[in-house]
């Protein structure tokens, strides 16, 4: 045994290092790690805590029932308000803080209705150059009720 003393020292060194590692590990492990699985459990709440940007159509409907009435009977009945008007959570929180900007129909309508071979054939689409010759869409169509006449 005496002749192997140096080996015992080296073994002791390794064991000490291992113990230090285990102690440090105990210290730095996040508290909620393993709560639901192999991850930091509190990460779920942190991700859920992100503020929203799009308020959702039901929120818009709470105030804008006049618009809703028109929209409901039209071809656009099922489209979310923010699909055209953009994210309005800030406006919903405080109507004074953020006012929605009325979108430019020349750009807005073309996004959906500009003809494209990949669009479903039954979907109404036009070549805006031929169809309106550069005229704004809302000079004929009302976006909330696009049918003319």
């Amino acid at each position: 045994m005496k002749e192997a003393a140096h080996l015992i020292r080296v073994a002791a060194l390794f064991v000490t290092a291992l113990l230090v590692f285990l102690l440090v590990r105990q210290k730095v492990m996040p508290a909620t790690f393993g709560q639901y699985g192999h991850f930091r459990g509190s990460a779920l709440e942190e991700i859920r805590a992100r503020p929203i940007a799009f308020a959702g159509r039901p929120t818009c409907e709470m105030c804008h029932d006049d618009q809703l009435k028109v929209l409901k009977t039209s071809k656009h009945a099922n489209i979310g308000c923010e699909a055209c008007h953009g994210p309005q959570a800030k406006h919903a929180d405080d109507t004074a803080a953020a006012k929605p900007i009325l979108p430019d129909t020349k750009l807005l309508c073309a996004r959906c209705h500009e003809a494209n071979a990949a669009k479903p054939p039954k979907f109404p689409q036009v070549l805006s150059k031929d169809h309106s010759g550069g005229e704004a869409c809302n000079s004929c169509h009302q976006p909330h009720s696009p049918k003319i006449g």
Binding site: L44, I47, R48, A49, R50, P51, I52, A53, F54, G56, R57, G80, E82, A83, P87
Partner: peptide, 15 residues
């Protein structure tokens, strides 16, 4: 996740 956990739908579905 921050939306659907509050009963909203996703931003892509919403729009």
């Amino acid at each position: 996740y921050h939306r659907i956990s509050q009963g909203l739908t996703t931003a892509c579905c919403e729009t």
